[in-house]
């Protein structure tokens, strides 16, 4: 009997302790879970804020790039053409009818070319609005601007048949990544042929830029972020979009940059 009473007491105490233990574990778990949720919400809000900030920065950079291209074109092309027109008209000798006719024709041709350049520039001014017509159209206009000086041969291929839907924010980022890559090629690569490929596979948009330039040491360039290549910037933006950036480059063999971003 005494053993029986002891056993009963042991059972009651052990049962109570077990119930208390399970309750404490569940309460503690709920507390930890809520804490993680709060942390996750804070992280999500921070990521959202970072994304908005980066989007604003990218918009400003695209505008800045457009203005730079415009200034460069005005100075290099239209400025030269109008200066030449001015010189041609100033050199007209009204007493020499034949030469005058020829010079007037030349001046007319120069003015016609200036008007053509101005029309082309006006499209450039609407660079960001081109994105509303689609990323492919914006890329084509960017390529067309680059090809006008005749130095670069650019091939553009696209394989986006599977793509349905669009994301204008991501289009802006991709357009800026392309601009930065092309700027790097112009400034550093010493290339004359560029291949640009835009494709869509497995819910990801892939932008591939290849040049036949002198190549560079990728790791060293990423470490020295002040070198002006802005690779860290490009990497950061790609990661912000949930994507990845790969660079393959060897000395004298050109460079391939591949951006892969979930889309839309």
């Amino acid at each position: 009997m005494h053993q029986s009473s002891q056993d009963i007491i042991i059972v009651i105490i052990a049962g109570t302790l077990l119930l208390l233990f399970i309750s404490i574990v569940l309460i503690f778990y709920a507390f930890v879970f809520q804490k993680r949720q709060t942390l996750y919400i804070k992280e999500t809000e921070k990521m959202k804020a970072d994304f908005e900030e980066e989007l604003e920065k990218t918009q400003i950079e695209v505008q800045e790039q457009t203005r730079q291209n415009l200034a460069s074109d005005l100075h290099d092309n239209i400025g030269q053409l109008l200066s030449l027109t001015n010189v041609t008209l100033a050199s007209i000798n009204v007493n020499d009818a034949g030469a005058t006719r020829e010079k007037l024709d030349t001046a007319q041709d120069l003015v016609r070319r200036s008007v053509k350049e101005l029309r082309h520039l006006s499209k450039l001014l609407h660079g960001e609005q081109l994105l509303q017509q689609g990323l492919e159209e914006a890329i084509r206009q960017e390529i067309s601007w680059l090809q006008r000086n005749g130095y670069y041969t650019i091939h553009f291929t696209e394989d986006t048949e599977e793509l349905t839907g669009s994301n204008t924010n991501k289009d802006l980022f991709l357009y800026r990544l392309l601009q930065e890559s092309l700027n790097n090629i112009i400034k550093h690569a010493e290339a004359n042929t560029i291949h640009i490929k835009l494709s869509y596979k497995n819910e990801k948009i892939i932008l591939e830029i290849t040049d036949n330039g002198r190549g560079f040491d990728v790791e060293a360039a990423i470490k020295q972020s002040r070198k002006g290549l802005g690779l860290n910037n490009m990497q950061r933006r790609t990661h912000l979009l949930g994507g990845s950036m790969q660079i393959q480059s060897t000395a004298e063999s050109g460079t391939i940059i591949i951006f892969s971003i979930p889309y839309p």
């Binding site: 056993d7 059972v11 049962g15 077990l18 119930l19 399970i22």
Partner: peptide, 24 residues
């Protein structure tokens, strides 16, 4: 967790008590 954890406890005690006090 409460049900099956609690049942594990009772099963453990049951097997212990069958050797000493089968009524309990």
């Amino acid at each position: 967790l409460v049900f099956y954890g609690g049942c594990l406890f009772t099963m453990g005690f049951y097997y212990y008590l069958t050797k000493t006090d089968s009524l309990l």
